[in-house]
Design a protein around this nucleic acid. Sequence first.
DNA 1: CTAATTGCAAAAGCTTTGCAGCGCA
DNA 2: TGCGCTGCAAAGCTTTTGCAATTAG
Lengths: 133, 133
Amino acid sequence: MSNQQLKEAGLKVTLPRLKILNLLEQSSERHLSAEDVYKLLLAAGEDVGLATVYRVLTQFESAGLVVRHNFEEGHAIFELTSEHHHDHMVCVDTNQVIEFVNKEIEDLQHKIAEEHGYELIDHNLVLYVRKKH
Amino acid sequence: MSNQQLKEAGLKVTLPRLKILNLLEQSSERHLSAEDVYKLLLAAGEDVGLATVYRVLTQFESAGLVVRHNFEEGHAIFELTSEHHHDHMVCVDTNQVIEFVNKEIEDLQHKIAEEHGYELIDHNLVLYVRKKH
DNA sequence: CTAATTGCAAAAGCTTTGCAGCGCA
DNA sequence: TGCGCTGCAAAGCTTTTGCAATTAG
């Protein structure tokens, strides 16, 4: 379980790390800001400092357990690394984040980089959308 | 010239606005942060406050003269609105920014949003690439 | 002349860091 | 026990805001 994941990541198994990892795994919302994580922990009666949340999330990112996004200006959003790559849609009205997978777009990106004499290392694609009524 | 663009944007023609717009039009680097603009103005002997740079860039954005990007966390990047929409490639080694246009990707994005019941308002696509040798 | 704009400094929001004490291995 | 980790508070950064003075129309 979480215990093992932390060890594999080369991180000491501490209470704050376990709490944060468990929260990320159990939360119904996959995309959380550091502040979100902090508030959820407080609400759950867990006593963890905000600075620790930031430090732990950054460590998780380095360990590959978590991905950091910059969907919106002002604050980062963290998400557990998922098995399959996906991109994101963000609703401009509700800030809801929707994941999607599209192989054509992935292929096109590689093709575009190649056409310019480059190798694709990574990419960031966010669609800002509004619900159709 | 710039004078006219400001009027058309419904903005009073003031010295700071002219200086900033001229700088954006004449700079060899199309992609600048507020701090970049501020420092370039200072270097050019122009006396404009940083707060004014932020305010003016935000007004330019509202007026559609400029586009704000969040390529990296920490600070926004501004670019004069260009006639044709384009996306960006950033070389991970040199930080060089390359613009590209790809209609297929644009169309796919609309299609994906539609398929999920949404209307595409905007998007952000950045390819992080490395020069092939 | 009047209202908009500017510059400064202070404040705001997110994130990082220094340091003393606590806790895992 | 020793080193890493945590919490708190303070500091750092980018960006915004309040306010008096300045400027455009």
